[in-house]
Design a protein around this nucleic acid. Structure first.
Length: 192
DNA sequence: GATTGGATCGCCT
DNA sequence: GGCGATCCAATCG
């Protein structure tokens, strides 16, 4: 299991989003690492993608997207939830990949406690759920996804799976773009 | 300074 | 399948 470095994230966003499927995300939760397999992602492109936070230019909230690749971008949504992204592509292209669902691996007891749910499928099957389960907080916004509190590793390279490409969830802008990717038949995705 | 609406979830029917 | 919760950031004036 190798850590994913800058060169992994510093590529075209749809490529990174697709490539992240099957990889391991690890969150440092106090002294315990929590982890899961990435099973669902969405690509948010730069200035030409009306669905992306960066579409209307740089602001205080989305500033991280305008920085280098391999940085955690976390934001609050609907007043109560948080979503986790990792930045991608070159420094002058404000893009990121939203992590939408995980298959829980390590720290499952802590995830259950954080979520108040017992079912494995209820722990990380949505962007706000996985943030809650793994204890990711807004204070991690802007930290490195290469050597910070949230990191990525290669998974089981021999594992074979089919990737489904479809439209992104919950958007009114850029809703027609097929930039959502998930592992076919995986029970831990957020929805079909 | 005020208004608007959102990359969601959970509970209800 | 539908809707309310709940609040901050972005936008406009």
């Amino acid at each position: 299991m190798e850590p994913l470095g800058k060169q992994f994230f510093n590529r075209e966003t749809p490529l990174v989003a697709k490539d992240l499927l099957g990889k391991i995300i690890e969150i440092q939760h106090k002294d315990t690492p929590l982890s899961g397999i990435v099973v669902e992602t969405e690509a948010y492109l730069g200035l030409n993608d009306p669905g992306s936070h960066s579409f209307r230019g740089k602001t205080k909230r989305n500033a991280v997207m305008f920085g280098p690749a391999g940085v955690s971008y976390i934001y609050q949504i609907y007043g109560i939830y948080f979503c986790y992204n990792v930045t991608t592509d070159h420094e002058d292209i404000p893009a990121a990949v939203l992590i939408r669902a995980l298959e829980p691996l390590k720290g499952i007891e802590i995830m259950k406690r954080n979520r108040g749910k017992e079912e494995l499928k209820d722990l990380c099957s949505g962007p706000a759920k996985l943030v809650q389960a793994t204890g990711i907080t807004i204070s991690m916004n802007g930290t490195s996804a290469i050597h910070g509190p949230v990191k990525f590793y290669t998974g089981d390279e021999n594992k074979n799976f089919e990737i489904v490409e479809t439209t992104r969830v919950g958007l009114t802008q850029g809703a027609d773009l097929e930039l959502r990717y998930y592992i076919k038949n995986n029970p831990f995705i957020s929805r079909k």
